[in-house]
Design a protein around this nucleic acid. Structure first.
Length: 291
DNA sequence: CACCATGTTCCTTG
DNA sequence: CCAAGGAACATGGT
């Protein structure tokens, strides 16, 4: 469930469930899951730690723990100041995180489990493209959140690049949090062609695009935190948030993504799918003409 | 078997 | 140094 809105909703869901909880034991069931941190080192570092705060940056989750004793300095956890240990989480394409009752069976691809006493925290990932790690270096490469970007700074960041704007939006060092789905959605909302070169956008167009990105992300968060929660309630005593997408608290919100051949919701023209940077882009050839 | 998938990183080629 | 393209990672759905 991995674009910024899904991560934000997940963070809001998990925060009250995890805050103040102490990790009794930790189990890494896949070598890859904590890369580049070795699994045993990861387990050792988090056992006994109490979660202070859970925050989000781009598509990453930051689990901030109170360190137990001295001895954490050698974990190479750059962010850990005095008394703090931070675990960085990323869901990749197929990761999920949830708090479960202890008698619930673990999913087949459970990658990391924290024993919290009367509950388990589970990170599971079918494709193992995500991770939970002590390596915080990815944070240094992230561009601003959409909400922190001024139109002027965004325009400046696009200058000097002839790359297609759609591909640029996926660059986390330019702007953090936009993924393949919402890149198409934002360009549709801004009525801009995904094939426009980044430096071809006028200041007015880049301003429109930045606003569209913010709107698309905010709408998704708003939708996910209302309909999504309702959809999921009842599962495991309401402890789950993300399950399998349920009945459409997600896809039905999308206006162009995955709608190839279907009529544009604005003008009726057939939506097209093209490949850019080896990934699918969906757009309306009429509403999103290059200008 | 073929192709596709919400992400990131690394490699090659130009 | 940059851009573009592709592969890799690993599993599952259609």
């Amino acid at each position: 469930m991995p674009e910024m809105p899904e991560v934000e909703i997940l963070a809001r869901h998990l925060r009250p469930l995890l805050r103040g909880k102490k990790i009794r034991s930790a189990s890494v069931r896949r070598e890859r899951a904590t890369r580049p941190t070795p699994p045993r080192e990861f387990e050792k570092a988090v056992v006994g730690a109490k979660l202070k705060e859970l925050t989000r940056r781009g598509k990453y989750l930051l689990f901030e723990f109170e360190s137990r004793q001295a001895g954490l300095a050698r974990t190479g956890n750059a962010k850990s100041g005095a008394g703090t240990l931070t675990v960085l989480g990323h869901l990749g394409m197929s990761g999920r995180m949830f708090v479960a009752l202890k008698n619930e069976t673990l999913p087949k691809h459970a990658a990391v489990i924290f024993d919290l006493g009367n509950r388990n925290f589970v990170y599971e990932d079918r494709r193992y493209l995500g991770r939970m790690t002590l390596d915080l270096s990815p944070l240094r490469e992230l561009g601003p959140e959409a909400s922190d970007f001024s139109p002027e700074a965004f325009a400046a960041a696009l200058k000097g690049s002839r790359q297609a704007i759609k591909i640029k939006l996926l660059d986390q060092s330019l702007i953090a949090g936009v993924g393949n789905i919402y890149a198409s959605e934002a360009l549709f909302r801004a009525r801009l062609s995904p094939r426009l070169a980044a430096d071809e956008l006028t200041p007015a167009q880049s301003k429109t695009l930045l606003r569209a990105i913010g709107d698309v992300l905010n709408d998704a968060i708003k939708f996910g935190s209302t309909v999504g929660l309702k959809t999921m309630s009842g599962k495991s005593g309401g402890l789950f948030y993300f399950d399998d997408g349920g009945e459409g608290y997600y896809e039905e919100r999308l206006r162009v993504y995955d709608r190839e051949g279907k009529p544009c919701l604005r003008c009726g023209t057939r939506i097209e799918r093209i490949t850019q940077g080896a990934r699918s882009t969906y757009f309306c050839p009429h509403c999103q003409r290059v200008r």
